Amino acid sequence: MGHYGGMHFIWWILGFIIFIFIFRKPFYSRYQKKQNPLDILKTRFANGELSKEKFEESKKIINADINLNP
């Protein structure tokens, strides 16, 4: 037969699965949306991690930093 009872086919499938597993992370991370600092701040405020005063203070700092570094 020469195919060792189908093991040749199994090794090709296993190699393909390993190949996909190794190279999938860089492709997925390339297309993920990156959050800007203001989005992160809004999320933390919505989750109740920040008070309204701290949110407003942090928002002013972030907006000032964005205006200084276009």
Rank of each mutant, 00 (worst) to 15 (best):
R44S: 11
I18H: 04
I66G: 04
I18D: 07
N63Y: 04
K33H: 14
F27W: 15
W12P: 01
G48D: 09
K42N: 15
N47D: 11
I62F: 02
S29M: 14
F19Y: 13
N63T: 09
Q35E: 14
Y4V: 00
L38A: 06
I62P: 01
A64I: 00
Q32G: 08
G48W: 03
I61T: 07
E56K: 08
I18T: 12
I62S: 03
M7Q: 01
I17V: 13
R44P: 03
I22L: 14
F9S: 12
F9W: 07
M7H: 00
I20D: 10
I66K: 14
Y4D: 08
L38S: 07
N63S: 10
W12S: 12
I20T: 11
F19V: 03
F27S: 15
L41E: 04
N69V: 06
F55C: 03
H8P: 00
E57R: 06
F45G: 01
S58H: 03
F19T: 07
N36I: 07
R30I: 01
L14M: 13
W12M: 13
N67T: 05
E56L: 08
Q35H: 10
L38C: 01
G15I: 03
N36D: 15
D39H: 08
K33M: 11
L14E: 13
Y4N: 07
I20R: 02
Y28Q: 11
F19A: 13
K34C: 03
I17L: 14
P26H: 06
M7F: 01
K59R: 08
M1Q: 10
F55N: 05
